[in-house]
Computed example of a mutant assay.
Amino acid sequence: MTEIVKFLLVDDLEENLLALEALLASDGLELHKAGSGEEALELMLRNEYALALLDVQMPGMGGFELAEIMRANARSRHIPIIFVTAGSGDSARRFHGYEAGAVDFIQKPIEADILRSKSKVFLDLFVQRQKIISQRDKLANAASALQAADKQKNQFLAVLAHELRNPLAVLSSGLSLMETPIDGVDKDAVRTSMRQNLRHMTRLVDDLLDINRIERGQILLRKERILLGDILPSALEIAMPAIESAGHTLVVNSLNDPMLLEVDPTRFIQIVGNIVSNAARYTPAGGRIEVSVSHSKDRAVITVSDSGVGIPDAQQSIIFDMFGQSDNARGVSGGGLGIGLALVKQLVELHDGDIRLVRSAPGEGSTFEVRLPLAA
């Protein structure tokens, strides 16, 4: 039992309260004492009780009257009530008590075993009720998460269909042009377009397969000790088609100090290539992309900045989530399935590194930072 259970003891005589407290004291049970009905009502406003033991005969507000008020209040009507009485146990009196909301009576002088036995029943019922409420809330949260996941899945499938249909249409049209003898058709341009769209489709499928492998724990890193300066050009080369087609300027700032990494070269190229390609896609034509390399203690730091459309504040928390592609305020569509940064994050973490969004604002571009451990 992790939550403290509370009982309310109400009696106008302090010695009676002390006696009840001594009889009921146990680990995990918190006993609150009230010397009047009014004091008891104040306590009920601030606490949730598993049981209330009320003295029937109290000056001012008696036990029956207090019980009737409790039953009329939504916050306290569920609290089980046991009346403690030294008076007559005749049927009329008991009927009045039950009518007021009692679940039981205990006669004075109190028999300790009977009191403990009856109290334990309500303590156990309260604990079970709290567990049921907790399970209900967990089920409600799980149902809500499933609904959100289902909605996200449907959105993803719609985007996937769109992303695959466009390249397929280009490939189909390109094949028709290649097979039909039409004058004036630039077949080299057609082939170039077909290759570009084929690469796009291949990238989509590869990203999906990589995400699936990572989630199933099936990606094995083939690490090598390699100089950052030797591998960075290969990573940037992946993004060059997107940079050149948009007329971007690429600036690379690197340190003269050699930095030795222990990474999977293929995955490192994938990490940096995806980030720079992402920057190129979300930067309007003729923009600037800057890649800087530095080190901090035992980490190599790779920073990628762009002059792109930026990410609204409300969407910055989801960019590393699966399918968390950001909308943008200037209408530049990055394409893709919105899984690029999610894949990069998982690959970076497989290398015991981290990635973060340093800054971003609509119309002012974005800056991402990847930190990877230096080789020992």
Rank of each mutant, 00 (worst) to 15 (best):
L221C: 04
I214E: 10
I226L: 12
I271R: 01
E224G: 03
P241E: 09
I214C: 08
R281I: 04
K223R: 15
S277A: 09
T266R: 12
P258T: 07
L250W: 08
Y282Q: 12
M240T: 13
S245T: 12
D264A: 04
F268A: 02
A285C: 10
L232P: 03
L260Q: 14
D257T: 15
L260V: 13
I231H: 04
V276P: 06
F268D: 01
G273P: 01
D210R: 09
D264E: 02
D210I: 09
S277I: 05
E237H: 05
T266W: 01
A246T: 06
I269H: 00
A235F: 00
D230G: 08
M259N: 03
R267W: 05
L209T: 12
I211M: 12
V272W: 00
T266P: 00
A235G: 02
L209G: 03
L250V: 11
Q218Y: 12
T283K: 13
S234T: 02
G217E: 10
K223L: 06
D210V: 10
I289C: 10
H248F: 07
R213M: 15
Y282S: 06
L228W: 05
F268R: 02
L221N: 05
G229V: 01
L261T: 00
L227K: 09
V272E: 00
P258F: 07
A279V: 08
G273A: 03
R288M: 11
I219C: 08
N253V: 07
E290I: 15
E215A: 13
E244T: 11
D257N: 10
S254L: 07
L236D: 02
P265H: 02
I243T: 11
L209S: 11
P241H: 09
R267C: 05
R222P: 02
N256E: 15
N256S: 15
A285E: 15
P265R: 04
R288F: 07
I211F: 05
S245C: 04
N278D: 12
L232W: 04
L261A: 01
G273T: 01
Q218C: 08
G287M: 10
G217R: 10
N253A: 06
A280L: 09
M259A: 08
P258V: 05
L221R: 07
G229E: 08
L209P: 00
E237T: 07
R216C: 05
M240N: 05
E262C: 12
R288H: 14
K223A: 10
V263F: 03
R225P: 03
I243F: 08
I269W: 00
T249R: 14
A235W: 00
P258C: 04
R288W: 05
E262S: 11
I289T: 08
E237I: 01
A280R: 08
I226W: 03
Q270A: 04
N278S: 14
S245I: 13
V251P: 03
V251L: 13
I289Y: 07
N278I: 08
L232S: 05
I271G: 02
L261Q: 01
R267P: 00
M240D: 04
G273F: 01
I219N: 10
P284D: 13
G273K: 02
I214K: 04
I231D: 03
E244H: 11
P265W: 00
N278G: 13
L227D: 09
I271T: 03
I275V: 15
A242T: 06
I269P: 00
S234Q: 12
P265M: 03
E224H: 12
E244I: 12
L260I: 13
L228F: 11
L232N: 05
L209E: 14
G217P: 06
N278C: 07
